[in-house]
């Protein structure tokens, strides 16, 4: 799975967990906090994304990225390492 497919999955999960964002454009440069996503929702988005791409990873290993694109990079790297 390539990095852009992973980013698309993450953005899809943001829209699933926070349907109130509606049609607002979301891209790799957006940070979840700036989109108004709270910490529990962030965890759910990451967890749902991990499941969707088939990665069983401790949540602590997903910490660090500053925006959705960096999260996609991280998950892409982890996926290719397994």
């Amino acid at each position: 799975m390539d990095r852009d497919s992973i980013l698309a999955i993450i953005i899809g999960q943001v829209r699933e967990v926070v349907p109130d964002l509606g049609a607002q454009p979301i891209s790799g440069g957006d940070a979840m906090a700036d989109l108004g996503v709270n910490s529990i929702e962030r965890s759910e988005i990451v967890m749902n994304s991990l499941e969707a791409i088939g990665l069983d990873l401790p949540m602590v290993q997903t910490h660090g990225p500053r925006n959705l694109g960096e999260l996609a990079d991280l998950l892409h790297a982890k996926l290719n390492r397994t």
């Binding site: 529990i40 965890s43 759910e44 967890m47 749902n48 991990l50 499941e51 069983d56």
Partner: peptide, 9 residues
């Protein structure tokens, strides 16, 4: 069958 993905809520 997917206990790792119990939603945080």
């Amino acid at each position: 069958n997917r206990l790792a993905f119990i939603p945080p809520r």
